[in-house]
Amino acid sequence: MMPRELLVAAVVLTAVSGCKGDKVLAGRRILETNPAGALALFQEAEKTHSPCFECKVYEGLAHEKQGDLAAAAAAWEAAIAIPDAVGKTEVSWRLLDTYEKLFEASKDRAERLAIAKKAAPLEVSLAAARAWANEALAESYRAEMKAAQKAGKADAVKAAASAIQALYLPVQRKRELAIEATEALKALFIERAENAFKEKVAAELAEQGRFDPDTSEVALTNRFTIPSPSKDPAFDPKGDGFKVALRKA
């Protein structure tokens, strides 16, 4: 199989472009041996033929050969942003690969998240089988969901859960994360109910000896005062119907 780099070049060479010229051809000839010199030629060609898809693609290759993946990604981002350019799909795959390398090389959480956000739409448009960027975003939203639960913010939990469901993920993965969101919301509901009980009812019940704040146990009792025989003859202990009246009470 042709290496991806050569495949990109082949696509570009066959593209119908208005930016071909002596400088682009000269740059291609020395790209392997002198990428810095080739880059300068591609940039010069771009000044007279803009927008130039071919120039941007080769600029990306020149940056890559010099080890500057961030600059390579920027060049390929500019290339695929050019309307009606031929060969965008292959360049998009190359860009996605570069994003992953940048993501893996970075130790900064914010930077990794920013890279994943750029890569995620490419995974969708290319129908990538392994959506690493969308999975990275899912884990980020999952962390937000847990933090929101800890902070007692149900709306934030719902927002993170909705963001997860909008990602390009396998159905089973979405289902697992949806269950986590449901459990988080359930826990928040129970916590709110318990807090409301403690604020509005617990103190009064504790004074009555019907609630233990240490164990959160509630003692359910049925209090009934037996009327005097003069008020209700049925409750006269000496009467035949006394026991029956008590049971009914």
Rank of each mutant, 00 (worst) to 15 (best):
K150I: 10
V218F: 00
E204Y: 03
L122D: 01
A78N: 11
Q172C: 03
K23C: 09
L96R: 02
E199D: 12
C52H: 06
A202L: 03
G37M: 03
S162L: 13
K198L: 03
D212E: 12
L126C: 11
E44R: 13
G241D: 15
S125P: 06
A71Y: 08
A196M: 07
A138Y: 06
M145D: 07
I190M: 09
Y58C: 05
F42A: 11
R130I: 14
V86Q: 13
I30A: 03
W132M: 14
P170Y: 06
E199M: 00
A26N: 14
V57W: 03
A26T: 11
G152C: 08
I80H: 03
Y141H: 15
A184V: 10
M1K: 13
K23A: 13
V244S: 09
Q208F: 06
A196N: 07
P83A: 07
K101I: 00
C55S: 12
A129C: 04
G37I: 05
A196H: 09
A26E: 14
K118A: 10
M2E: 14
A184G: 11
R175I: 11
T221K: 11
E77D: 15
V11E: 10
K198I: 01
E217A: 01
F42S: 06
R130T: 15
L69Q: 05
V91L: 06
A81H: 11
E90P: 04
R173N: 08
A119I: 12
S230N: 07
R247E: 13
L39S: 08
I115Q: 04
K107M: 09
L137K: 13
L69E: 01
G152M: 06
D236Q: 04
A193S: 10
A181G: 07
Q43L: 08
A202P: 09
C52F: 05
L169T: 06
S17K: 08
E100F: 02
I80P: 03
W132K: 13
L13H: 10
A114G: 03
Q172K: 15
L6W: 02
L61Y: 00
F224Y: 09
M145P: 05
G21T: 12
F42C: 08
G21E: 07
L246W: 02
S125C: 06
R28H: 09
E217P: 03
F242P: 10
G67E: 02
Y99M: 09
A159C: 05
D108W: 04
S230I: 10
G209V: 02
A193V: 10
T14F: 09
A163G: 02
N195T: 07
E144D: 15
